[in-house]
Computed example of a mutant assay.
Amino acid sequence: MSVHLDPSLYLKNQSSERTPSTNLGKDEFLKILMTQLQNQDPSNPMDDKQFISQMAQFSSLEQTMNMAKSIDRLVESQLMSPVIQYSHMIGKEVTYQSFDKETGEKSDIVSSKVISVSQSEGWAVLELENGEKIFADAAMEVSDPTTEVKEED
């Protein structure tokens, strides 16, 4: 007794159009695997160890790709951080316009050394040696006190 399979039964459900892609993801891998399983020789089926090995390799590849994406997002978020962007100002001397705290009017032009950088509502805040905190964009001048020429007595 011979069994005759009608190939149109499973070919009917598959897409007839092929859309090429430069990326191979898990969906493409599973399609390849299913095609491989559907078209295998019944008298010599795919080795189950080979199948498991392919699945393990794919799983490992997928995890590596996900980790790479996560690292990219982490690096991108760190580069966008105001604290990272302005951290080079620690130890620098900044000159800025001070304001009278009671009246809000302009006061003196002040210089002080930056001792730390923090973030407030997405803006970089410089904490100064004189106890003041200013937004980084309020600095009128930035200098390196270690390279300034000192007068000899």
Rank of each mutant, 00 (worst) to 15 (best):
H4K: 12
L5A: 10
Y10R: 14
Q14W: 12
Q14E: 11
S16C: 02
S16E: 11
P20G: 04
S21I: 00
N23D: 06
N23K: 14
L24D: 01
M34P: 06
T35G: 08
T35W: 03
Q38C: 02
Q40T: 01
Q40R: 00
M46W: 10
D48R: 07
Q50A: 13
F51L: 12
Q57A: 11
S60D: 13
Q63D: 07
N66M: 02
M67I: 03
A68W: 08
K69V: 03
E76G: 01
Q78E: 14
Q78D: 10
L79R: 09
V83T: 06
Q85Y: 04
I90E: 02
I90Q: 07
G91S: 12
G91P: 10
T95S: 13
S98Y: 00
F99C: 00
F99G: 01
D100Q: 02
E102W: 04
T103D: 03
T103A: 00
G104V: 03
S107R: 05
S107Y: 03
V110R: 01
S116C: 06
S118N: 12
E121T: 08
E121H: 07
G122V: 07
W123K: 13
A124C: 09
L126V: 09
L128F: 09
L128Y: 02
E129W: 10
N130P: 03
N130C: 06
G131Q: 11
G131R: 13
E132F: 08
I134T: 12
A136S: 15
M140G: 01
T146D: 03
T147G: 02
T147A: 04
V149E: 11
V149F: 15
K150Y: 09
E151S: 10
